[in-house]
Design a protein around this nucleic acid. Structure first.
Length: 266
DNA sequence: AAAATCATCAACCGCGATCGC
DNA sequence: TGCGATCGCGGTTGATGATTT
């Protein structure tokens, strides 16, 4: 099999993405989705290879990306999952809504691996020095600042309010927007009862009703730049393959329920 | 203050898996 | 069923800012 020539040989651009390119890619996916990554850049008018576009979208531009530093709980989850799954970053990412495999991989190599070498039993509350997020360049600074700002502003949805699209579920978290602790993955005995209809096909199109009052669906606020999410974004286009795995995970959690209607303390 | 070193993370690369003709 | 095209994953690199010397 003959490989397609790499981007450089085709005269395509490499390296960091410019805000204009982000805008073009975002607009295109909003309007048309990403049927064929390879054809996308040509159709969108980008001098990038499809691979690069896909990576940019998945790791950075997707509206359901959670930004900012990892919480202790998230880090503990990664450590635990890495014990179980090894370097299967995409599988680990599927368990951490809003986080990408690339991001998790980076965190593992730059932070967690070293921490594990120092101590066999790291504690979530152990004091750590967290370096501030690096501002990579002047052109990127607005993106990072606004993204981080956006990340601080979760839009909490009432459990009975409408979740009309699949992407509404893409950042599902439980227990007051916190993430799952590693121990909870092993012992999930007190989870809320979810109506079966929640998981039905129709539920993706219609507003589901959940029986647990303590379950909260959260949704990351869209990035200020370059999105105009509220007006223009079509959530169906945000669908990602990892979403299936993520849903499997949540389904697994919620089906292991007891009579309790309260979530465990995360 | 400058140079050297370290840490971070976006992006690239190559390969195996999967898809579709 | 075979084969080419495409996708997605994991490993790696390199640019850049932070910290240390």
């Amino acid at each position: 099999m003959v490989r397609a020539p790499c981007c450089e040989k085709m005269g395509l651009k490499k390296g960091p993405w410019a805000p204009e390119e982000d805008q073009i890619l975002t607009s295109y996916i909003q309007k048309h989705g990403h049927g064929n990554w390879r054809a996308l850049p040509k159709q969108a008018g980008l001098l990038r290879c499809g691979k690069s576009c896909r990576l940019r979208w998945i790791n950075y531009l997707r509206p359901d990306i959670k930004r900012g530093n990892f919480t202790d709980e998230e880090e503990e989850t990664i450590i635990k999952l890495h014990e179980m799954l090894g370097n299967r970053w995409s599988a680990i990412a599927a368990k951490l809504p809003g986080r990408t495999d690339n991001e998790i991989k980076n965190v593992w190599h730059t932070n967690l691996k070293k921490r594990l070498l120092k101590t066999d039993h790291p504690t979530p509350n152990s004091k750590r020095v967290t370096r501030p997020k690096i501002k990579r360049s002047d052109s990127d600074s607005s993106i990072i600042t606004q993204s981080e700002t956006a990340n601080l502003n979760f839009r909490e949805m009432d459990t009975t309010s409408a979740c009309t699209t699949s992407s509404d579920f893409s950042s599902v978290t439980v227990g007051d927007s916190k993430n799952i602790k590693s121990e909870d993955i092993e012992s999930l005995e007190t989870m809320p009862v979810i109506d079966e209809s929640f998981w039905s096909e129709a539920a993706m199109d219609e507003a589901p009703t959940m029986s647990s009052k303590s379950l909260t669906i959260t949704h990351d606020m869209p990035l200020q730049y370059p999105f105009n999410y509220e007006e223009n974004f079509q959530p169906s286009h945000a669908y990602d393959s990892n979403f299936d795995d993520g849903m499997d995970f949540w389904y697994d959690i919620f089906t292991r329920t007891s009579d309790s209607t309260e979530l465990p303390e995360f």
